[in-house]
């Protein structure tokens, strides 16, 4: 099979899109996962704990 422009384009427009959606969805789930909340709170506050030097 030769990989021509048509094939690549079709692939990008379908599987490429699905792939990106899945990864993005994964990131959103990670960000919203309830048990991660405390970790994020800690991170958000961590930079304020140190007095700058």
């Amino acid at each position: 099979m030769t990989i021509d422009h048509e094939t690549l384009t079709a692939f990008a427009k379908t599987y490429g899109l699905i792939y990106m959606m899945i990864v993005f969805f994964g990131a959103v789930v990670y960000a919203l996962w309830p048990s991660n909340q405390s970790k994020f709170d800690r991170a958000a506050n961590s930079i304020l704990e140190q007095d700058e030097d």
């Binding site: 990670y30 994020f40 709170d41 958000a44």
Partner: peptide, 27 residues
Amino acid sequence: YYYLPKRAGRPIFSYRLSIISFWGIVF
């Protein structure tokens, strides 16, 4: 995301949003 909270003395409003925004922008 570092200097603004530091200067304001307040943590970033939503850490979660900063992560989602990151991946949104990247993609």
